[in-house]
Computed example of a mutant assay.
Amino acid sequence: MGIIRLENIRTFSYHGCLDEEAKIGSDYLVNLEVKTDLRKARHSDELADTVDYVHLNAIVKEEMAVRSKLLEHVAERIIARIFTEIASVSRIMIAVSKVNPPIGGDVASVTVQIEEFRT
């Protein structure tokens, strides 16, 4: 087994419960970790034998572009797409962070982290 990580995927998105967040948007960071079997790829040196991180990045960017009120909801969409589109992934750990959230204080970011296993 092995782990593939994509760290600090940056997006500008329009998530949030406030009307202003839908209009002005905000910066987000996504950290993604997937567990998969890397044994075949270690020997074959072929992209077809691993999880393509370009594909993972595309899923994250596409789902981050779809507005959600809650970070939990956008994270769930990303998880669902990865499990649907990439059969070899057995576990996903995702963290979605809103940078400089509008919560009335000096807070660098808020993060929702979810771990999910293929059933």
Results as ranks from 00 to 15, higher is better:
residue 88 S to H: 12
residue 69 K to E: 01
residue 36 T to L: 12
residue 113 Q to M: 15
residue 79 I to G: 01
residue 103 I to E: 08
residue 9 I to E: 00
residue 98 K to G: 03
residue 56 L to K: 06
residue 71 L to M: 07
residue 39 R to K: 15
residue 115 E to P: 01
residue 43 H to Y: 06
residue 81 R to I: 02
residue 115 E to D: 13
residue 76 E to F: 00
residue 106 D to F: 10
residue 110 V to M: 09
residue 40 K to V: 12
residue 93 M to T: 13
residue 58 A to M: 08
residue 18 L to K: 10
residue 40 K to N: 13
residue 54 V to G: 11
residue 49 D to N: 10
residue 104 G to T: 02
residue 53 Y to Q: 11
residue 90 S to P: 04
residue 32 L to C: 09
residue 12 F to Y: 11
residue 40 K to A: 12
residue 117 F to A: 10
residue 95 A to M: 11
residue 43 H to S: 03
residue 72 E to M: 05
residue 19 D to R: 05
residue 104 G to C: 02
residue 71 L to R: 03
residue 119 T to W: 02
residue 20 E to G: 01
residue 97 S to Y: 06
residue 93 M to F: 10
residue 96 V to K: 03
residue 109 S to C: 11
residue 29 L to E: 14
residue 37 D to L: 15
residue 6 L to M: 07
residue 23 K to H: 13
residue 44 S to T: 11
residue 97 S to L: 14
residue 80 A to I: 04
residue 109 S to V: 06
residue 24 I to F: 12
residue 92 I to R: 00
residue 107 V to A: 07
residue 82 I to N: 00
residue 74 V to N: 01
residue 10 R to N: 04
residue 103 I to D: 08
residue 107 V to I: 15
residue 81 R to D: 00
residue 9 I to P: 01
residue 90 S to D: 11
residue 104 G to D: 05
residue 34 V to E: 01
